[in-house]
Amino acid sequence: MTGDRSESPSPGSIVGFPRDRRIVKTDEFSSVFRLRPVYRTAHFVLYTRLNPLPDAKARLGVVAAKRLAPRAVTRNTVKRVTRELFRLTSLPPVDCIVRLSKPVNTKAGPATTASLKRELRGELIKLFASQVVVSKV
């Protein structure tokens, strides 16, 4: 059965999100947050700055507050979708922080995980596309 979690994936099919592509330290988050937001969508705000490290790669930090996504399932979905789209987008060496800015999965919004993922994916594609356009200019 396709999508069954009990099946183990083949070793070559696992694509991770390595630690050197993540923003993990508090002071790294703070230095990016000090800058103005680059782009906003209905649910997200994107902050960026050039990566100061010598062997620079694009790095990502995701902030999904409990008050904006009360269910852990929703917060994890937001983070998972964000990391996957970031991994698939080729960006210049910048530090990006994607912050959830409005509540998701409310009574007015999508209730199923599939519709939530679809909506979030559309917004995140716009965010990362805006960064690619900004970096080319």
Rank of each mutant, 00 (worst) to 15 (best):
R87L: 13
F17M: 09
R5Q: 12
D27H: 14
N76A: 12
V32Y: 00
E84Y: 08
V94K: 03
A111Q: 15
E7M: 12
L120K: 01
K66L: 08
S8Q: 13
R21Y: 09
E84M: 10
C96A: 14
F44D: 00
V94A: 06
D20Y: 14
L60H: 06
A56G: 10
R49E: 03
N51Y: 10
F86G: 02
R49C: 05
P54A: 15
S30C: 10
R118K: 14
P54L: 14
E28N: 09
I23P: 01
T89Y: 06
K79N: 05
T82D: 07
T48A: 15
K57N: 10
S31H: 08
C96D: 04
K25S: 09
R5E: 13
V32L: 09
K102Q: 14
S30K: 15
S31G: 06
P52Q: 08
A114F: 09
K117R: 14
T89P: 02
R19S: 13
L100F: 06
I97A: 10
L60S: 05
Y39H: 13
P70W: 02
D95I: 01
P54T: 11
V63D: 03
S101I: 05
S31R: 14
T41D: 04
I14V: 15
E28T: 07
T48N: 07
R19Y: 03
V45P: 01
A58Y: 00
P110N: 12
V104C: 07
S13I: 04
R22M: 07
L60P: 00
T48G: 06
P70K: 00
V104Q: 03
S31N: 07
V32S: 05
R21G: 06
F86Q: 04
I14S: 10
G109R: 04
